[in-house]
Write a protein that binds this DNA or RNA. Sequence first.
DNA 1: CCGGATCCTAAAAGATACTG
DNA 2: CAGTATCTTTTAGGATCCGG
Lengths: 130, 130
Amino acid sequence: MSGTAPSHAATGTDPALACPVAPVVDLVFSRWTTPILWTLHAHGRQRFVTLERRITGITPKVLTQRLRQLERDGLVVRTYHPEVPPRVEYEISELGRSLAPLFAHLAAWGEGHLDRVEQARLAYDADQAR
Amino acid sequence: MSGTAPSHAATGTDPALACPVAPVVDLVFSRWTTPILWTLHAHGRQRFVTLERRITGITPKVLTQRLRQLERDGLVVRTYHPEVPPRVEYEISELGRSLAPLFAHLAAWGEGHLDRVEQARLAYDADQAR
DNA sequence: CCGGATCCTAAAAGATACTG
DNA sequence: CAGTATCTTTTAGGATCCGG
């Protein structure tokens, strides 16, 4: 129950009822869930520490929280191996894998358009300074 | 300069250096930017009040903030008509329009997979209750 | 009509320390 | 190793009032 979700839906307020993209955003596009899913997709099944090392700046607390949420949402599968020392592995689920083309498109869009965004910002700021 | 951006990049901390999707998320996937872009895309050029009415629950302050950010990022074009009373219209820019297929894919994914997410949650919670 | 200014809350995230 | 516990900070967003 302590698995704090970043979900807006959980608050009761429904942001834009008419926007079908909102629930998906709520599910996979928050500060850390996206990098987590990306890393899991890029490197396959891996353990907690590995994830922690690969995702720069994340703290174990947040990593646990987001991982739990993703597991609950069925996007990630957690496997616990009762050994000493304990070993836990995470991997993308089948459902999670269905997001892959989406992520690829997003990354591609960034590749192609992010520099134009940067130019727009410079132009806006320059215009604002006058 | 007071246009508070939700950007994490602006804070200086770089979440996941290796995740190319993160900057795009930062740009268009926050609680209100997504519905705003969607509404603008769905209904074309429209004025502030119209936007405010169509996006359920948004406050004028937040609408202004996000609109400013989107304008600065070059995704939205703001047109001011010096009349009495003043009239301001917003529309998606060419750059913003390039996001359309992405949004369509996101919406389609939601259509097809959101119910499975819901089932996963129910299963997880049921299992947790034991 | 289109916001700007101000104050405030709620929730996510960060820091740090500590266990089975 | 894989987390948990606790505390503090940050910030998106909400509420309200005011002005050109």
